[in-house]
């Protein structure tokens, strides 16, 4: 097999929007994820960026089938994940973990740290016997930089950063290959963010993990990622090596996104040119025709409303792709009433 661990093809997660009232009629469709093609390579850290509500988290959840995809395919290590039975799904849950955003909400307040971290071990029958399990929990806590002596304590006795470490220890307990970090540092203090970020990077190297790092914090993503994928309104619009996407973004949306990051240098910061986008993000329940960014794009031209752009090679770096007609009109006219909206 190739070095692709996780792969999405035409992945869709649509939520029915119900009108209020007793009949609960479906009034529309919210396209949280709408035709995403994405490959995540073994051992890499892929940063997934985009503004709030663009479907980043839903995509991360759909890859692990924590949210049921409504269309398209996800393969994990060569197997199609979308049709897995109960047992196979449980095995997937061992091999692919998740670190959640809010460490205050993601730990059961009524269970000790040891019980929380040991849960994957119990679920998958990984260490039989109390003693081995306790030893493993101690190992895991040490791995994430916590004193194993705290295992008997409850989550409320910890700070946010410590809790997030517990969450990471839980995610690592099943010795997964793949970890989705869903805004894992967003609700931490800035100083703690750096610690957790470095912890993740260290663990990734040490354990050979494949990481999907979902964040709206571009600096953090650039710091930790090998490659960066940019998402806009349910679609991945640009993917490439972190250095290339960071230095030479090819899609107008990515350019605007990057121009919003402050530069930690007074002179450079003063000369920084901001691209300020007009208007709001369109509702994912009412996606524009053609290129979904065209309503806010400063460069929009004739083909944009009619042709849904496909990802195409751009720039100088290999593996750098973007969905934008500025690099040549590629893609097909798309009626969004159909089920498959992705043009390959």
């Amino acid at each position: 097999m190739s070095d692709v661990l996780v792969s999405a093809r035409g992945l869709e997660v649509h939520f029915p929007v119900r009108s209020g009232g007793a009949l609960r009629r479906t009034a529309g469709v919210l396209r949280a994820v709408d035709g995403v093609d994405l490959d995540i390579h073994r051992g890499e850290t892929l940063g997934l960026v985009g503004e709030s509500g663009c479907g980043k988290s839903t995509l991360g959840n759909a890859l692990l089938r924590l949210v049921e995809p409504t269309g398209g395919r996800v393969t994990f290590d060569g197997t199609d994940v979308t049709g897995l039975g109960r047992r196979a799904l449980r095995d997937l849950r061992r091999r692919a973990g998740m670190v959640f955003q809010d460490p205050f909400a993601s730990l059961d307040p009524r269970r000790t740290v040891a019980q929380t971290v040991a849960e994957p071990l119990e679920v998958h029958g990984l260490r039989s016997g109390r003693r081995e399990r306790a030893a493993r929990v101690g190992e895991l806590l040490e791995l994430v930089g916590l004193d194993p002596a705290v295992a008997g304590r409850y989550p409320h006795e910890f700070s946010g950063g410590q809790r997030q470490r517990v969450g990471i220890a839980r995610a690592l307990a099943g010795e997964p290959d793949f970890l989705v970090c869903d805004e894992a540092i967003a609700s931490l203090d800035v100083s703690v963010q750096a610690q957790v970020l470095n912890l993740l990077r260290r663990l990734q190297r040490k354990l050979g993990l494949t990481l999907l790092f979902i964040s709206h914090d571009l600096s953090a993503v650039r710091h930790i990622s090998d490659r960066i994928a940019v998402m806009y309104l349910g679609r991945v619009v640009e993917v490439g090596p972190a250095s290339a996407v960071g230095a030479e973004p090819q899609m107008p949306y990515t350019q605007a996104l990057l121009s919003a990051v402050p530069v930690p240098h007074p002179a450079l910061e003063r000369s920084r040119q901001r691209i300020v986008l007009r208007g709001d993000v369109p509702s994912p329940a009412d996606v524009p025709s053609g290129c979904r960014f065209r309503t806010r794009c400063p460069h929009a031209f004739e083909p944009c409303p009619g042709v849904d752009p496909a990802l195409q090679p751009v720039g100088a770096a290999p593996g750098h792709v973007a969905a934008c007609h500025l690099h040549g009109v590629v893609g097909g006219p798309v009626e969004r009433e159909g089920t498959v909206a992705s043009a390959r």
């Binding site: 692990l64 924590l66 799904l89 449980r90 095995d91 849950r93 061992r94 973990g97 998740m98 959640f100 993601s106 730990l107 059961d108 849960e119 994957p120 679920v123 998958h124 969450g167 839980r170 995610a171 307990a173 099943g174």
Partner: peptide
């Protein structure tokens, strides 16, 4: 959800 994510 976290517990579900580890296979519970």
């Amino acid at each position: 959800r976290a517990s579900r994510s580890v296979g519970a």
